[in-house]
């Protein structure tokens, strides 16, 4: 893997982008890597556009500035594409993973990335979370999709750490529904 991998999560407050970034970092750390996870804090309110970040590396990470050039962008809410510059600072061959009902080709057009070396992955994470968890909670399926698309971590590692992290806050049956969402997303992510 790259020496230092940087990820930017775009979500709306309440969609769990911060939790997703934290779980991903915990999973990377459990796998023996070094990682950071931190959200951007502003005047928080439900539904407001927000971002969260990850750095993952095989070596200790000492940098503590914002992530400005992420090679991976995860978009939990497709309406943010119109509201935010989700491509800001991303290299030409960056990876985009979008929660959408669109297919990858259509999303590539929507992002203005036709004829670009960028990789575009899509997943209907909202539908998966409705089917499994019973409410629109796209963060856990998007973690599964991220691991499915990039091979960043072993799926089992992600599942183990999700179980641990969500288990501190949620009832076991809800945790298991989230795990099911991760498994489905891992399979269904498309490019």
């Amino acid at each position: 893997m790259a020496k230092l991998l940087e990820i930017r999560w775009h979500g709306r407050a309440g969609q769990g982008a911060k939790t997703a970034a934290l779980v991903l970092a915990e999973a990377a750390i459990s796998a023996g890597r070094y990682a950071q996870a931190f959200p951007e804090y502003g005047p928080e309110r439900m539904g407001a556009p927000m971002q969260a970040f990850n750095r993952i590396s095989d070596e200790p990470i000492t940098v503590h500035s914002h992530v400005t050039n992420p090679s991976i962008v995860v978009i939990l809410d497709p309406t943010l594409i119109a509201a935010t510059n989700v491509k800001a600072g991303v290299p030409a061959d960056g990876i985009y993973l979008v929660n959408t009902t669109m297919g990858p080709c259509e999303m590539r057009k929507r992002l203005g990335l036709t004829d670009s070396p960028a990789k575009v992955y899509t997943l209907d994470a909202t539908q998966i979370s409705m089917d499994t968890i019973g409410r629109a909670m796209p963060n856990t399926p998007m973690m599964g999709a991220l691991v499915g698309a990039t091979g960043l971590l072993e799926l089992d590692q992600l599942i183990a750490d999700t179980r641990e992290k969500l288990g501190r806050k949620l009832r076991p049956e809800i945790v298991e529904k989230n795990i099911e969402a991760i498994r489905r997303a891992f399979q269904e992510v498309a490019s």
């Binding site: 915990e26 750390i29 950071q36 996870a37 931190f38 959200p39 804090y41 990470i61």
Partner: peptide, 12 residues
């Protein structure tokens, strides 16, 4: 410790 930069950032 630095607010948010460290207080709210997860690390190893």
């Amino acid at each position: 410790m630095d607010g948010f930069i460290i207080s709210h950032a997860m690390e190893v």
